[in-house]
């Protein structure tokens, strides 16, 4: 056991905690300081977790097979950038992005297609809701059998996983415009297409972006898990499952760090686009009454 390191980590943790407690109790005059504080609190918390993690691993000399220290993961990450880059390209750029675009596009298209048929909507919506609760990930082995080991099978899994959330949310969104607004469009003698493009789609954007955000996470999970069922010798899921077998846990954590950053960035980009598109929505404008 290495007491000084452990003690230092715990002291850092307590200090950071106290500082955070103090920070949230402050009232700042300027807007800049306020937003800086809002940004700093979670950041300090995150850094504290890392320091505490490092301190515990070193302090108790936890074997690196069990839990490698953050510094070790960082070292591994820097040293194996080419491998990680290849995995990222295979899994994220090929499988996740194309599957995400296809699945969301299909869900959106089908929702528009069944928009004119209440019968089909009533038939498909309960099924869509039901499928959202199912372990859809289980189709992965079947898709691997049908479409082969390469990224095409992962695309298929991602398409199936992202299709239903998109369908359900788009249909709900298209119903979001109120009767009064629709009546107004009718008095303008607007056609179905004009009503769709000028009223109902804009009203549906918050719902559609909700699905896009859910799907950004689902897509990455689907692609990675599908790789557990068979893959060429590249890809994030492949790397995770083989390096676990070889007990190279630091490499696994490096891969997870890449996946986490990629997933968060993906989500962040979708959220940013949402802010730009649905700038009129109350949750974006901010509730300053």
């Amino acid at each position: 056991m290495n007491l000084p390191i452990l003690a230092a980590a715990i002291i850092f943790w307590l200090t950071a905690w106290a500082f955070n407690e103090w920070l949230v109790r402050q009232t700042f005059q300027s807007e800049a300081a306020k937003s800086a504080a809002r940004f700093a609190v979670p950041l300090i918390f995150g850094v504290t977790i890392l320091v505490l993690w490092e301190g515990i691993v070193r302090g108790f000399s936890v074997p690196s097979v069990l839990l490698p220290a953050p510094s070790m993961i960082w070292h591994k990450l820097i040293n194996s950038l080419p491998t990680l880059g290849a995995d990222f390209r295979q899994t994220f750029l090929k499988a996740v992005l194309s599957g995400y675009a296809l699945g969301c596009g299909l869900g959106f298209a089908v929702a528009i297609l069944i928009d004119r048929s209440p019968f089909l909507q009533k038939g498909l919506l309960p099924l869509g809701n039901f499928v959202s609760a199912l372990p859809v990930i289980g189709v992965a082995p079947i898709m691997v059998m049908w479409f082969g080991f390469d990224w095409q099978s992962k695309v298929a899994v991602v398409v199936i996983m992202t299709f239903f959330p998109m369908l359900v949310n788009t249909v709900a969104g298209l119903a979001a415009a109120s009767h009064m607004e629709r009546d107004l469009m009718r008095t303008y003698a607007a056609s179905w297409w004009q009503t769709l493009v000028k009223l109902r789609l804009p009203a549906a954007w918050p719902f559609i972006f909700n699905a896009l955000k859910i799907n950004s996470t689902l897509a990455l999970i689907g692609a990675i898990v599908a790789e557990f069922f068979g893959t060429p010798i590249v890809g994030m899921g492949f790397r995770i499952s083989t390096e676990v077998g070889r007990m190279n846990v630091d490499m696994v954590w490096a891969e997870i760090a890449v996946a986490a950053v990629a997933g968060s960035a993906f989500y962040g980009v979708v959220a940013l686009i949402e802010r730009a598109v649905t700038f009129w929505h109350p949750s974006i404008r901010g509730g300053r009454a």
Binding site: P42, F45, I137, I224, M236, I256, A260, G268
Partner: peptide, 20 residues
């Protein structure tokens, strides 16, 4: 303090492929 420091991480961790 818990709200300010934990909540952003709870949300951020949802974007991470935990299943991996």
């Amino acid at each position: 303090a818990m709200d300010r420091s934990l909540m952003p991480w709870v949300i951020a961790s949802q974007t991470i492929p935990i299943l991996a």
